[in-house]
Amino acid sequence: MNAVIYHNPECGTSRNTLALIRHARIEPQIIDYRTDPPDRTRLAALITAAGLTVRDAIRQKGTPYLELGLDDLALDDAALLDAMRAHPILINRPFVETGMGVRLCRPSEVVLEILPAIDGPFTKEDGEVVGR
């Protein structure tokens, strides 16, 4: 199975998601979205395929969300996507795409919905055990 993860190696959730993918014996294509963000069309497609709204896919914590005025509910999707492209840290993470679908993997075990069954439990960085 092929998999793509839009990854931030500084994020524990993103690291746990990557480790879960590898636990499923899949070596994904890893894209550091901060330095190589998806283009506007691809970003919109990922968000839609994950069943989210553009606003749902924006990260607020640790980003310039408020400084950019993105809390203005009058902003349309086009303006929000433009902000996400201009400031990739606004893209919530990690998005994962496999042949089974696309998910925003928060929490990290959401990735299990789009992976084949894993062998045995997996222990996250914080000690929490997950698996099916």
Rank of each mutant, 00 (worst) to 15 (best):
L112A: 04
E113M: 08
F122D: 05
F95P: 00
A49G: 02
Q60P: 03
D56H: 09
L81A: 05
L90Q: 06
R25I: 01
S14M: 07
I118G: 03
E27I: 02
V102K: 11
L66K: 10
I89F: 05
P116S: 07
I58F: 02
T53G: 05
T123A: 13
A78K: 10
L115C: 02
A44C: 11
A45S: 15
V54M: 04
D71A: 10
T35N: 09
M100Y: 05
G62V: 07
I91M: 06
D76W: 09
A57N: 01
D72R: 06
K61S: 10
H7W: 07
D56E: 12
D126I: 09
K124R: 14
A3L: 07
L80F: 10
C105E: 05
S108D: 09
V130H: 09
F95A: 00
I58Y: 00
T48Y: 12
A49P: 00
F95T: 00
P28M: 15
D72C: 08
E109D: 14
Y33S: 04
E27Y: 06
D119S: 08
H87W: 10
M84P: 01
E27V: 05
T13P: 02
P37Q: 04
T98V: 07
G51A: 13
L104V: 01
P88Y: 06
D56I: 00
G127S: 08
F122E: 04
V96H: 04
T53R: 08
H87V: 03
Y33F: 14
R106G: 02
I30G: 06
G120T: 07
L104E: 05
N92E: 14
T13N: 15
G127T: 02
R132I: 14
I91K: 00
I21S: 04
N92G: 10
N16T: 06
L68N: 05
R103F: 07
P94H: 09
A3G: 10
C11R: 02
L46Q: 03
R85K: 14
V4A: 11
V54I: 14
I30L: 12
E10F: 14
A57H: 00
G51Y: 13
R22V: 05
E128Y: 13
L75R: 15
G69D: 07
A78W: 05
V110K: 12
L52M: 14
G131N: 06
G62R: 11
P88R: 02
N2A: 12
D119E: 14
H7I: 11
Q60E: 12
T48I: 10
F122Q: 03
D39H: 04
C11Y: 05
V4Q: 12
T41V: 13
H87C: 04
D39I: 01
V130N: 06
G131V: 03
G101P: 06
A78Y: 09
V129E: 10
P107V: 09
D119F: 01
E109P: 02
R59F: 06
I47C: 03
P38H: 07
R103Q: 13
L68D: 04
R59L: 13
P121M: 11
I47G: 00
P94D: 10
V96L: 14
L66P: 00
C11L: 09
L66T: 08
L46G: 01
I114V: 13
L81C: 03
R55S: 03
I89R: 07
G51L: 14
A78R: 09
T98R: 09
Q60K: 14
H23M: 13
A83D: 06
E27H: 07
A3I: 04
E67D: 15
D71P: 05
E10Q: 11
